[in-house]
Every structure is written in C-alpha cells, then in structure tokens.
Design a protein around this nucleic acid. Sequence first.
DNA 1: TCAGTGTCTCTAAATCGTTC
DNA 2: GAACGATTTAGAGACACTGA
Length: 535
Amino acid sequence: MIAEAHTRLEMAQKQAVDAADRTASTSADVRYLKARLRALEARAQRYEALKDKLRVGSAEEKKRARTQLKKGRTFKQEIRAMVRMLLSCGCKQDRIGQVVREVAAAFGIQLDWVLSRRTVGRIALEGLVMARMQIGFELKQTQAFTMSSDSTGRRHQNYQSHHIHLKVPVGYDANSQVVFAESPTTRFVGVHLTTDHSTTTSHATWIRVYDDVMTTFNKSPLAKRTGTLDLRGICGRLRGMWGDHANNEKALSDSMRQTKYDLLLTELGEERMKMIEDDMGELEGRMQEWSAKKIADAGGIEKWNALPAAERAARDLATTAAMVQGLGVEELASMDEGERNLLTVWVWTGCCMHKDQNSFKGGNAAMTAHWKAIGAVGPIPLANKDNAAAVRKVLQPEKGDAPVTDEDIKKLEDIAFGGAKLMALAGAIFHNALDKRGQGDAHELFLEFALNEECVRRFPQTNNTRFGSHGEAAVELITHLDVYRCFMEVIRIRKVNQTYTNIEKNVNAGLHDNPTLTELAVLAIYHILITAPYM
DNA sequence: TCAGTGTCTCTAAATCGTTC
DNA sequence: GAACGATTTAGAGACACTGA
C-alpha cells in the first residue's frame, strides 16, 4: 500500500515537473513571439516611412534640404548642438529626429529622413568628449582654481557630484596672450556612483574625474598644440576646496591638499636632482646617505641581503621617491616666503548655508534666553497639558504617536515658545508636509483674495526640512499679520462647531502676543539683512 | 577606402498598469 | 500596497550603406 502510494507520488511529482517545464517553455515562446511581432510592426512602420520618403519633393528639393543640415554625410555642428540642447530639455532620444523634421518643415524644409536614435546617442556622447576637452583646456590655461563636491544617497547607492571654479579663458589679446573672464565660472564635472562616503573613496573619485579629463584632452589635436595636461599641473593650480560642514568633507580637503603637497615636493625634488646631477660628489653623498638609511630601516646589511628580490626592488623605489621628496623639502625651504606661499596656499571653506543655519539657530537661542536675563515678560508658552501631543507632533515628529509623559509636557513647556516655534506650528497649518493635512489650499485661496493677487506663494515649509524657511515665514507673518489674524478667524468660523484645534489655538494666540511678535520681527530682520543677501 | 550614419539586435533599468 | 508582467527608454555592439 505504502509502496503504491510512493509510486503514485513519484509519478505525480514527475508530471508536475513536466508541466512546469512545458509552462516555462511556452512562456519563453510567447515572449519570443511577442518580440518578433514588435520587430515586424516596427519594420512595417519603417516601410510606410520609406514610402513617405519617396513621395517627398523632387530630387533637387531633397538635395537642397540635405545640404541645409548636412555637410556630406555628416550632420552640421549647428544640428548637433541643437540635438544636445533638445536632450538637455528632456526630449527623448527616440523623438529628436521627428522634432528636427517638424521644425525644418515649419521653415519650409522638407526632410526625407530623420536622425536615428543611435546617431542622437552618439551626438550626446560627443557632448561628453567636448565637455572634457573644454575642461582640460581651461585647466591647462587657468592660473588657479578651486574644487567642490557633495554626495547624497538614493536607494542605498551613493552619488558624488563634482564642480570646479575658475576664471575661464575667453579669448586672446593682440599679443596672442590668453584673456581670462573677470569673475570665476563654475563648471560641472560630473556625478559619479561611489561605493561609499569615505574620504578615501571620495579622493579616488576626484582623481578619476581628473584622469578622465586628462585622458580625453591629451589624446586631442588641441593638446598637441597647447601641451598635455598632467595631475601635477592640475594640482599645482589647485588652490583649495569647499564643501559642507561634514567631517569627511574636511578630511577630503586635507587629503587633496596632501596630494598637492606631495606632487609639489616631487616636482621640486626632481628639479633639484637635475641641478646636482653635474656635481657627482654631492650626488654620491646623497645616494650613500639614503642607501644607509634604507639598510638601517631593514635591520642591517644581513637582513637587507636576506630580503626577497621583489621586496628589495620595492624598497629601492620607495627610497628613491623619499630622496626626491627630501630634496623637494629642501628646495621649498630655500624659497622666499612669498614664493613658497604661492606654491602651497590652500583654502578650505565650509558651506555658508550651514553657517547661516547655525547663526540663525544660535541667535534664536540667545534671544529666547534673553527675556529671563533682562527680567522682562517673555512670549507665551505654546504647549500645555491639553495640546502637548499635537505640539510634539510638529516639533518632535520623530517621537511619533508614543504616549506623552509628564516629563514630555514639562520639556515642551520649556522649549515651545517664541517666534521660531510659532513658525513651526504655523507651517503645520498653512503648508503641511502632507497634502491632506492642514489648510494649505485654503491658505493660498484666502491670500489671493485678501491680497488681491492672482497667484501667491505657498507658506514657507517650516514643517519640512527647508533652508531659510523659518526666516521666510517670519517675514511672511510680520508683513501680512492682519491677513493671517483674519485667516485664523476664517478657519474657525468655517467649521461646524466653530472651534480651533489645539495647534490653531496656539498659533492664533501667538499672532496676538507682543513678545512672540517681537521675536518674529527680529528673525524677519535677520533674514532680510543677512540670510537673503548672502545666500 | 574610410568615416559618419542607419538598422537590427540584445540587454538593463525605470515606469506603467493590472491584479489580488 | 505588494507583486508581477508589459512597455518605454536608453546603451551599446555588429554590420551595412553611402558620399567624399
């Protein structure tokens, strides 16, 4: 009985496997046939297009149309530039040929062909080569430049963006000398996918950026005329770096500075070496000195001799490099201070946006503490036992829906007051980060009516992470204080029970509290005088 | 003959639409 | 909202065509 059951089970399993195989095979056939069908449909479309082609104009007209856009078989530079412009505007590669044909038709030129997607792709690639050529040429010509980068993550992938800032060459003067632009220009040099956010990886990615530029530029006829570019030359012109205030950005700056310094020492060392090559006595003395150090580092002549040949060769190489660098240090030290500074100067600047954020936050903290210091009546508290949960949701969203403890209430009473906190609560009502919450649309419509404007800006997103939003909100509330007071009243009377929610009650109270409004005015003045002009 | 271009094809990723 | 398949979009290799 059991044996029979086993046999039937085996048969059933075999049948199931066969059925799965047949299903997989059928699915593959279906996919293949669908792909063939699409290919045939595309072929039919091309056939129709070919028939249209034959109908378009006389041979003379076709020739004229062709010579307008092509030089021989090649599309003219103007067309290629237009393709890149269309790409940068977001036009699909597949559609660009049709767009060009339609535009040409609008100007009375009947084209009997369209640019293929493949050609559009190639023209886009040309753009990359041209960009690298241009950057290479500008780096070759400029006297000094700085670089900056930042990175971000998307779907757990790290991306690093790169920019350089330099006075670009704009032409030649009467003596064939390069003329540079008055003010520096920022050049985008690419976004790269990186394995992580570490300083080592960021540094290596920058070197790759320069390497790509050098490789392309150095292969060009332009490089043959103007001279090739190398990392030593690039770092020699590099004067500094900027980034945000993250520690790794500062470490990256230090790392680039070290690269610049090492390459400088090598260059100076090699120059010094050339100078002393004629003086055999000095050269021999130097070699002996470094050779003795090399053997001492290995632990004596016996241990040196016992080292494998490859290890000795590597150490020889390192010793030579160290000797050249040593000569470089001497050469640098022998220079006058001005010359030395010019070669080694390095400037690091952090992001002024972060600085402004820190100033705003610090200034606000000092201001809110000052009421007590001068013994004046400060702003009204915006949190109490009844509304603590609602206020905490805005001011401390990370705590979610966790129960509000007595300790939470006390903490909120201590921190939830003043202009900045009022703006955070106002943002939750007038422009909530979630579309479904708050009074975002009503706010917009009411302001359009009250200010008699066709289109008003949404309330600054203090409810979201947006730079300068609290300053902007202070300006907005102080400028249109009466309108906002009126709007709060409208919010209340539009409801069936004509009452405020807890947050609305606090915002309304804040808009009528003089100390709170005083803070608001101070923050608005700071935003107008400091943040807006300098950001 | 050669360089520029077009066509076909395969592949991968993103996006869209449907179903549960 | 997740899962899945279909569709769209793009990159790229191979090869054919064609005008200079």
